[in-house]
């Protein structure tokens, strides 16, 4: 009995330890260099194409119901002509200690073995709790079953589910690409190499502001960038341990 309990507590304690995902295979991270970001929104378009995001139209957008798994937030400072606009791309931060996972009653959102928050659409019953708990407002709800206009339904990505009404969804770090990359690497008996896979937004970014990689690998590009002095994470004081690292904008 005591051995069983020890085993049980040992397993339980793995999850209590901060940074337990350090023991896992990968710790996927995106580093966003705000010095390089010019707010062109190419990442937004790429995300829409890759992840079958519906385009909802003007009226729904005015109700803040646009599907932007990644969005460019604009903050304007000062009055014309002395205006400064700052951009920050916000996507799901894939928190290590995610609030959304606490809220979900059916495990529709959970932490996977790569340190990602995964959303299982089939399990979601639409209680909105995850989206309410999320401090970054990056979760999006399917208010209706959306239709794509005539030629557009031909370009849906077959690797990604088309969601029905009543389901919550969010950025997955393009988990379909990660899965394919892992399969490929497993067949060749190796780990995924740095830069081998990229989410759609990272791949598209013309300025090269975004970098994707494994933070557990000290030689990876993201690990090197993450040591930068400009490094910060969004709302660090909320103790959510996000996986998206921003590099502070210093250029005027």
């Amino acid at each position: 009995m005591s051995r069983f309990l020890d085993k049980l507590f040992a397993r339980f304690n793995i999850y209590r330890e901060p940074g337990y995902y350090g023991k896992y295979d990968y710790k996927w991270t995106i580093v966003i260099d705000l010095d390089k970001c010019d707010g062109c929104e190419a990442c937004v378009i790429a995300c829409h194409a890759e992840n079958n995001l519906p385009v909802v139209g003007e009226e729904e957008c005015s109700k803040n119901r646009a599907f932007n798994w990644i969005r460019i937030e604009r903050y304007v400072e000062g009055e014309y002509p002395d205006v400064k606009v700052k951009f920050i791309p916000i996507l799901c931060q894939q928190c290590g200690k995610a609030r959304c996972e606490v809220g979900c009653p059916t495990y529709a959102t959970y932490h996977n073995q790569d340190g990602l928050n995964v959303q299982v659409y089939n399990r979601c019953i639409g209680t909105f709790t995850c989206a309410t708990y999320c401090p970054y407002d990056v979760r999006h709800f399917n208010w209706f079953s959306y239709k794509w206009d005539a030629p557009l339904e031909q370009q849906l990505n077959p690797d990604v589910t088309v969601r029905e009404k009543g389901v919550m969804e969010k950025c997955t770090f393009c988990i379909q690409r990660i899965r394919a990359g892992k399969d490929h690497a497993k067949d060749e008996g190796r780990k995924i190499m740095d830069g081998e896979i990229q989410p759609a937004c990272v791949q598209t970014c013309p300025a090269g502001a975004m970098t994707f990689g494994d933070l557990n690998d000290p030689e990876s590009m993201v690990s090197k960038l993450a040591k930068s002095e400009r490094r910060y994470r969004l709302f660090e004081d909320l103790n959510t341990d996000p996986s998206v690292i921003y590099l502070k904008r210093v250029m005027k």
Partner: peptide, 23 residues
Amino acid sequence: HMGRVWNFYWVLPYPNQRTIWTN
């Protein structure tokens, strides 16, 4: 309030074959 009310019973913990368990 639920988005998919037809799955309301998923919040009840009962043994089932669909690997659905409550959090």
